[in-house]
Design a protein around this nucleic acid. Structure first.
Lengths: 122, 122
DNA sequence: TACATGACTTACCAATTGGGAAGTACCCCA
DNA sequence: TGGGGTACTTCCCAATTGGTAAGTCATGTA
């Protein structure tokens, strides 16, 4: 399996913008990571882990690395012991979050609709 | 494996709106299906198939069924031979598409950025 | 009788994704 | 000497997702 050296590789040619954006947000925890970083500004690895109940260390690092490659997240390593690594959103990360705003609203409406449906059914 | 009778099942409890929205759009072709139906209003199965180069019949029906269950797509069957089935967006489908607008714009920007990067690298 | 049409199912397979558990490195503290 | 904290990595397995190819059904047409 080839390794992406700078970036690129995966991230095929896209048919439309949705395509290109979805590629970057798909992954079980990426939406939540974006949300956590937006809410707190800067977070350490263990803090993010605590903020995403159920995430494994493996997935968290994997997602963070991909988001870093995709230019959404900035990773700052401090040469200390014990190690300290801080994550924050880049400008692109913040603009993506903004672009997700309307979608989030729609999602909330959907949750509400489902809740009413379920309620009515019972 | 249990079958969803009315709806529900999969579609877990959501942590946030993004979550709930993503659940409904994730799937290799769903974004494109939304786009096709938005652009044309009403499409038959074979037309959609032609509009999504590379999709298999299996995936197309599977995605259309899920989107119907999720209330995004309306499916109208005409009792004719050979059969005729027409797909269109529901109101929720159209509002979802609208909510995806900003994300699509962001994606276009991303494509453009990548293009420039690649160009600069060569 | 045989084939085509449209919208599917079904069975089987491969690839991708995610999870769990353990290991790593370094140092501090009791 | 042993345990804990931090930020990981590695291996291995299970579940999900997507692809291919073939079959189905009812009728119209050659």
């Amino acid at each position: 399996m080839p390794v992406a050296l700078s970036k690129n590789l995966r991230r095929g040619p896209y048919i439309c913008g949705i395509d290109a954006a979805m590629d970057v947000v798909s992954g079980k925890w990426k939406g939540l990571i974006l949300w956590e970083l937006e809410a707190h500004g800067v977070r350490r690895f263990a803090q993010l882990r605590r903020g995403l109940p159920g995430v494994s260390e493996k997935m968290l690092t994997q997602h963070l690395r991909e988001m870093e490659q995709d230019g959404l997240v900035h990773r700052e390593v401090y040469a200390e012991v014990p190690p300290r690594v801080e994550y924050s959103l880049t400008e692109h990360g913040r603009s993506l979050n903004a672009a997700l705003g309307a979608l989030g609203e729609w999602g909330l409406d959907r949750i509400e609709r489902e809740r009413l449906d379920t309620q009515a059914a019972v």
